[in-house]
């Protein structure tokens, strides 16, 4: 039942001729025309160390989480907004768009279908950006260790800064994890975006190994 990779390209992404509103026909190749297909580059911090430290302090104080729950662990993130846990007092906020967020929390198991979306979301975020793997599913598959459609080891596909163990981790554990992430950021060690850029071909090869219907450019901003 092996299929040709072009089989997976959706019709709207196929190269085709389009007639514009002014009656002129022109050719479009969506994968080339609609996306900016440039690989990420390593970004260096500010020239002065003191400035970079200052930026790192601000980054640690203002963690904007992308509101993207990839699995059941997302249910443990919601209580963080409630009066009982109130993550806002630690400078943690949720943003609905990938452009504005700088922390992607992979909350629980990640099926290959969701992995594709998670990669797109991650690549749309701006450097510096952080990834936190939440729960044992992201570490070694957890209870989905023999599942046919969930990945077992998140750091093969995305540069993970921190794992929070548990199945599920309690909101307190999440808060503790975010505090540890802040320490990493302040120490300047949370450079996942640069690791991703450096090992870009390795990450892409791993991603393409599990995502069989790769119908997007290699890098989508």
């Amino acid at each position: 039942m092996k299929r040709d990779p072009m089989h997976f390209i959706k019709p709207e992404l196929m190269p085709r001729k389009v007639k514009g509103p002014d009656g002129v026909e022109f050719e479009v190749e969506p994968l080339r025309d609609y996306f900016c297909d440039a690989p990420p580059t390593v970004q260096h911090g500010a020239y002065l160390k003191i400035v970079e430290d200052f930026f790192n302090w601000a980054r640690a104080q203002s963690l904007w989480i992308l509101g993207f729950g990839t699995g059941c662990g997302a249910i443990e993130m919601r209580p963080l907004m409630t009066p009982r846990f109130d993550a806002y007092r630690y400078g943690i906020q949720w943003r609905p768009t990938a452009r504005q967020a700088n922390l992607l929390v992979i909350s629980g198991y990640l099926s290959t279908k969701t992995l594709k979306r998670a990669i797109r979301a991650y690549e749309q975020m701006q450097n510096p950006k952080y990834v936190v793997g939440l729960g044992s599913c992201t570490i070694n598959g957890g209870m989905y260790w023999d599942s046919y459609n969930t990945i077992k080891c998140l750091d093969q596909y995305l540069p993970v800064d921190l794992y929070i163990t548990g199945c599920m981790p309690r909101p307190e554990a999440l808060l503790q994890g975010f505090e540890d992430l802040k320490k990493l950021i302040r120490a300047g060690q949370a450079e996942g975006a640069n690791r991703y850029a450096e090992n870009f071909t390795w990450y892409k090869a791993n991603q393409k190994q599990v995502i069989h219907d790769w119908d997007m450019p290699d890098y989508n901003w």
Binding site: M1, N140, G141, D146, N206, H212
Partner: peptide, 30 residues
Amino acid sequence: LEGWNDIPPYRRDFDTLQYAQDSYAQRPGR
């Protein structure tokens, strides 16, 4: 499923564990 390239996974002759081990990178020590 997106881009599935094996026999349908709910058939009993589909070996889930074997497929998972072949397809996904595993973390040793489990």
